[in-house]
Amino acid sequence: MQLRKVLLGLVTLTSVVSSAAVARRDEGGGKLERALSLEARDEPEDTKYFREDSELTGHYDARFFSEVVDYDTRLDTLKHMVRAWLLAAAREGIETWIAHGTLLGWWWNGQILPWDGDLDVQMSADTLTMIGDKYNMTRHKYVSEDGLVEREYILDVNPWIWQRVRGDGMNVIDARWVDVRNGLYIDITGIAETQPDSMPSILNCKNYHRYHVNDIWPLRDTTFEGVPAKIPYSFDEILITEYRSKALVVTEYEGHRWNTKNKTWDLASDVPAGAEAEQLNNRVREPERYYSVESGGFFYNIFRLLHWW
């Protein structure tokens, strides 16, 4: 009789504890839901501004797309495109720096990673607003240094740039620098303090990448693909946060191998790429958490307690 009452007490206690935990979680969730529903009401259903040809892994702007280009054409397009962007930005006084995979390419050898489908640059939200006002839909001619290559690019700013949070995920890219010949492009994203009160000095781009002001500024001067470029102050830490330190170590990736002599990524047919590589990567991926002691879970702990009592 007494034991049963004690057990009853135990059950009451657990329910009180867990309901308290659940209740607190619900509170937060409720807020989030309300915010989401507000946004949903304000916006039309299909809000995506930039359209890619999604069949083609999303690396072409649909308006300028005619056909999928081959490996060499793509590399050639991207190299001249990023040079053109960096030169044009410097000429016009637009503060921009390279980011994500493009920054990783810079780390390795100051060039783009040949398997990268698109390029990423960033700027502050203020600069983005400025180029939206001043340069939207402007066309820019480019002649390569040796005079042999002539290209034309369009700077297209997403009209959704005022929305500094991710929203429905349809407009995470703020602007594009598009090669009008084939629709390949550079992604331009703005970063801004989205919560200056609760998280001052924390910058966000819409894709949930988060930076501290001091990780970005003061920017460093360097060169990329042979032209002057800027990179974030703490490029090491940004790269390791975004790609883990393995990205600074692995010398075989996506069908390419690092050539230690020439310091270039060369095509290698024996290095797996695509889905096959993903599988292999999954297999050798390191565990991300280590446990010294098994926590054993909640019910096991109750059992253990009762047992030893």
Partner: peptide, 15 residues
């Protein structure tokens, strides 16, 4: 028992 239970619950959740 109550405190041990509560602590272990919190601990398990935090893990």
């Amino acid at each position: 028992i109550a405190s041990v239970l509560a602590i272990s619950t919190v601990w398990a959740y935090s893990r």
